[in-house]
Design a protein around this nucleic acid. Sequence first.
DNA 1: CCAAAAGTGTTCCGTCTACACCCATGG
DNA 2: CCATGGGTGTAGACGGAACACTTTTGG
Lengths: 225, 225
Amino acid sequence: MTGFYSEHAKVWVSVDCIVFGFEEDKLKVLIGKRKMDPGRGEWSLYGGFVGAEESLEEAADRVLSELTGLKKLYMKQVGAYGAIDRDPGERVISVAYCALINVRDYDDSLREQHSLEWVDVKDLPHLYSDHNLMVTNAIAQLRRRIRTEPLSFNLLPVLFTLTQLQHVYEAVLGTEIDKRNFRKRIKEIDYIEKTELIDKKTSKRGAALYRFNKKAFAEDPTFKL
Amino acid sequence: MTGFYSEHAKVWVSVDCIVFGFEEDKLKVLIGKRKMDPGRGEWSLYGGFVGAEESLEEAADRVLSELTGLKKLYMKQVGAYGAIDRDPGERVISVAYCALINVRDYDDSLREQHSLEWVDVKDLPHLYSDHNLMVTNAIAQLRRRIRTEPLSFNLLPVLFTLTQLQHVYEAVLGTEIDKRNFRKRIKEIDYIEKTELIDKKTSKRGAALYRFNKKAFAEDPTFKL
DNA sequence: CCAAAAGTGTTCCGTCTACACCCATGG
DNA sequence: CCATGGGTGTAGACGGAACACTTTTGG
């Protein structure tokens, strides 16, 4: 410490995670009731303070793995929120991160331990502080990116059917998509590979299972859907 | 102060401004040589610390008006930068803001006072800390937004010719644009109004001056170019 | 009179959209 | 045998890209 900036004020910085999951053909967010003051009992995103010895990304990773037990999730910064009175307790600047997880990878007992709930984004309650704004911005970002980046696979199991994939796009974009047009476009994308496996859970006839080939995508990282 | 968060560490938070201007048909950024340690003498964005009693936006506004003497500039958050060692002196988290200004509104003596230079984005030197990354991200954001938001007018005088406007798009996007296609699209946009005035500075024949009508845009805020 | 920038339409091609029926199977 | 979700192709509309010449006037 050399004291370059000692005349300036320091503030608390936190990270808040908007964790999206896909369940029952709906886009959902993981929220819980706050267990601490201020705001005890209010619905809230899950977050944590940034330590002196960790970067913003590390803090977000830490919070996410506390929350989900999962590592190496898709994660993207949404933005910094710095209104003076955004936190009812003290002055805290928060950086929001959006994460996408496959609900089936997620240990449900961990969810219950933290008393978290998957809530449909269309049906969000009032959240603590400016968390509703964060979620709104995260959804807007998700909608923009899902057309040009292979995000959707993060919300699905490794093997998925085209109907499932289509439902992800419909849930995120909030629109209906024509099945034939959708499948036509998929066919032209090399790194969405059809496997020999058949899923019989959702239909009597059975649906072909597909897989996202990361290596093939890395070779030609263009995405357009 | 109620001491809710006292067990957690506080950090310094700063804002850094990426100020874009349009000059000589090029997209330029305002940078200067740092006048303080650490990093004295290095090329750098202009920034400042966030005070205890101001929001991030207020801090960015304050820094921008110190810098330009201008208020109510177009300004957008680029993102938060929080690597541990990003600042060579101490641990500082910085939030980058991108601003667009009309170079002709800008008092050049103020520029000289702060020993700032307009530098072509294609010709940027190495900048202090992670500032090159901030500029890169700001340009990427600008390219995305300029197609769907009426940003370009912020880089031009109130009255501008269509050739100037086209040059703004070419400089930001880094591509050549077909003149006839460009003007065809402009004609279909109601809130880009042709005035009776003629600019004779750039050509012998003279070019019609146009204006962006904010009110007309507010009534139908769709933009597509 | 000529250099230099302003201004102006049409054609073509590729992309997106709309749209309806047969298939396979478990119950 | 029928209800349920899986799977397939075509035609028309629309929007974007390519492209070249005339106009005006200051020097």
